[in-house]
Design a binder for these strands. Structure first.
Length: 433
DNA sequence: TCTGGGGTCCTAGGACCC
DNA sequence: TCTGGGGTCCTAGGACCC
């Protein structure tokens, strides 16, 4: 399949109509978020190529600054290769709790504009400002307000895309990065997308993209050749949604719902072909402890788990059940020990995974939800905070320390001291009281 | 080519029920 | 045993997201 490196979206006429849109959806996207936070916190790094890795031992680049990208450094690249492209590259270990803190500030600030905020990732959010158009002004004024709000909350620049549906808004936000501001009136969305490759849309990757390419559909405009019913037959509801997305009519709504997570898991890449049983057990214990800690923090428990080892031949795994739901790492670790005993025959592994499946709350709701019963003002605000924390709270866990036998007992406890999001929430509560 | 770490949703198909 | 028809639950695995 051909690589698409450029967008071919059609230009938008400058004279925009001033009437309110039937729907007004915005995507806010932080630029190279982790790297930008580091450059903000360390002014001497501004204007220089910075790459974020998982600890100082990390060899894989999680993300990098625009200066590094200009030199050819990319997400997922090995550090060694990145140094070849960019000898002046600065390696920076990730500070997840700091990113969570900045993310929380940004999301909370966005909430002052509208309650209709969907936290899409640690550095992206959708806003539905349909109802606020008369108060907030023209699309340009609203987009500017958002950029200003984000800047005041974080000191960081963001890119904003605005249109009448999520897909077009998200695509628009990718234009003119960094510090972008792209407005596509809903009436122009179909025209705007006409020459855009379908694989640039959020939700179309190699699988669906390949299927479409086999049928001669490469751009959003090509999709008109294919009946929606055919996509529906092949891909069900998603297929029908994708067809509509391509004509700028993505029906998906901005949702502020916060749901109990469907799974809570941790995994870790180990040295290649690890065969030492004690080492495997140490990693499995560490993962069990992280999972149990997060279950306790969310006030969740589970009796169904996934435990797996990734080997050169693929995953070896089980999905054991306990008689009773738990949030106790000792019981989870017990399952891990059984797993090694019963399912592992000495194959070298390079990754471990422990996940709690379908956790459910101990008291009937997520612990993070009931922090406040002030229905009139406080609740929705905490709703947004909970949304962030429920989805990205794990970021406030400090990264795992170097694992070795002697340090093992100390690995977990200090790392769990709540930083970041947790602290911000408590601050907010104090502010109210 | 799987780097690092965390998720969601959907569908097909089997087991089991009346 | 495969004729008739309907349904549910669960699991594995694919596809996608950051």
């Amino acid at each position: 399949m051909p690589e698409t490196t450029a967008s071919y979206c059609s230009p938008i006429p400058p004279d925009l109509p001033s009437e309110p849109w039937p729907r007004a959806i915005i995507l806010v996207d932080m630029n190279a978020f982790f790297a930008s936070v580091e450059q903000h916190d360390k002014p001497e790094w501004r204007g220089r190529p910075v790459a974020i890795t998982n600890g100082l031992q990390g060899t894989c680049i999680i993300t990098c600054s625009y200066e590094a990208r200009a030199m050819g450094v990319k997400t997922g690249m090995r550090l060694k290769q990145a140094y070849e492209k960019c000898p002046t590259l600065i390696q920076c270990p990730a500070h997840p709790e700091r990113y969570a803190e900045v993310s929380t500030s940004i999301m909370s600030a966005l909430y002052t504009i509208t309650p209709d905020v969907e936290v899409f990732s640690v550095d992206e959010a959708f806003l539905d400002v349909t109802r606020c158009q008369k108060i907030l002004g023209t699309p340009q004024e609203i987009a500017q307000l958002i950029k200003q709000t984000v800047y005041e909350a974080s000191g960081l620049l963001c890119s904003v895309g605005m249109s009448g549906d999520k897909t077009t808004a998200k695509h628009a936000a990718k234009q003119n990065k960094p510090d972008g501001l792209t407005i596509v009136p809903p009436s122009q969305a179909k025209h705007y997308l006409h020459n855009v490759p379908v694989t640039e849309l959020c939700g179309i990757n190699k699988g669906i993209g390949g299927y479409l390419a086999d049928r001669g559909v490469f751009t959003c405009g090509d999709m008109a050749q294919l009946p929606i019913s055919e996509l529906g037959r092949r891909f069900g509801n998603i297929g029908r949604r994708i067809w509509k997305m391509c004509s700028g009519e993505d029906p998906d709504k901005v949702t502020t719902e916060v749901n109990t997570p469907k799974s809570v898991g941790h995994g870790k890449v180990m040295p290649p072909a690890t065969v030492d049983e004690d080492t495997l057990l140490m990693y499995l214990l560490h993962m069990s402890e992280k999972v149990a800690a997060r279950l306790r923090r969310y006030n969740l428990q589970a009796n169904h788990f996934f435990i797996g080892l990734n080997t050169a031949q693929g995953w070896i795994s089980t999905k054991p059940r306990l008689a009773n739901p738990t949030q106790d790492e000792r019981l989870i670790y017990g399952l891990c020990k059984n797993f090694l005993k019963d399912n592992w025959s000495g194959a070298g592994a390079h990754q471990v995974q422990v996940t709690a499946l379908n956790p459910h709350s101990v008291t009937g709701q997520l612990l993070l939800f009931d922090s406040d019963n002030d229905l009139s003002s406080g609740k929705t605000h905490h709703h947004v905070m909970d949304n962030i924390n429920a989805r990205y709270g794990e970021l406030s866990l400090a990264p795992a320390r170097l694992l070795n036998r002697s340090s093992m007992p100390n690995v977990i406890a200090p790392a769990w001291k709540p930083f970041g999001l947790r602290q911000t929430i408590e601050k907010t509560k104090d502010g109210k009281n």
